[in-house]
Amino acid sequence: MVPSTEELLEIARTYWPSEEDPNQEPSPEAHLLHALWQPKLADPGPWDILIDQLEQAFPQDSIGDITTSRDASFWCAIYPRRTPERAGLHWVYVGCASIIAPVYTVYRVLFEYGERRMFRQLDLEPPAVEPAVTLARLMESTMGLSLLPPDIANHPVPVFVGWKSPPKTTLFHALFTSEPDNLP
């Protein structure tokens, strides 16, 4: 079950600062998020199982665990297999499992593949196509998370997350990432 918007706002305020620090020192909230990451990164668990399941479900694609502790979520991506004959536009599907709330999201990023990869489009609505459908199903069954509805994900939150600042910061940024299109 998805927590209420009010509960999610309170969670965001716990792990992200409401004021910008001119000295750019880590905030007390940043220390709390860092402390939360330590046991999650050290102990293999449902996330590792999910990555294995995705590799089995999509053997023709590349599965990447792209998690970084600067965000508030585990990240994975399903990349199309790259070959010279597969140049052109391709969607990369991304799944994020929040570590601060029992929610996940699935979205996609359109890249143009050629000599180098170029960003073209970001689609934050969970698409009802494969592999997004299977990714969502596995995130729910393996991790016990609920999909964060787009209307709640887009709710503004008065905190600073990465380079996002109020009034542009949303619950999506606070619970998952402030740079959804910045994929390795």
Rank of each mutant, 00 (worst) to 15 (best):
L147Y: 11
P39E: 10
E7K: 08
W163C: 06
P59C: 09
K168I: 04
A42Y: 12
E6C: 07
V157I: 11
F176E: 03
L36D: 01
F74P: 00
S27L: 00
P102T: 05
L171C: 06
I49C: 11
D21N: 13
E19D: 11
L36N: 02
I99R: 02
L33P: 04
Y113S: 11
R70G: 09
P3C: 06
L110M: 13
P3E: 11
R117H: 01
P156F: 00
A153H: 07
A132D: 09
E10R: 13
S4M: 12
H173S: 05
L36S: 03
T67W: 07
L32G: 07
E29M: 11
Q38G: 13
W75F: 13
D65K: 02
L9W: 04
P26W: 07
I78C: 12
Y107V: 09
E179Q: 09
T105N: 08
S141R: 11
F119T: 05
D43Q: 13
I51T: 08
D52N: 14
A42E: 15
F111R: 02
A132I: 08
G64E: 15
I66F: 13
E130R: 02
T5I: 07
T5W: 00
M139Y: 05
I100R: 01
M118H: 13
P44H: 10
L145V: 02
G64N: 14
S178C: 14
Q60T: 09
P102G: 05
F119G: 08
V94R: 04
E19F: 08
S69L: 02
W163E: 13
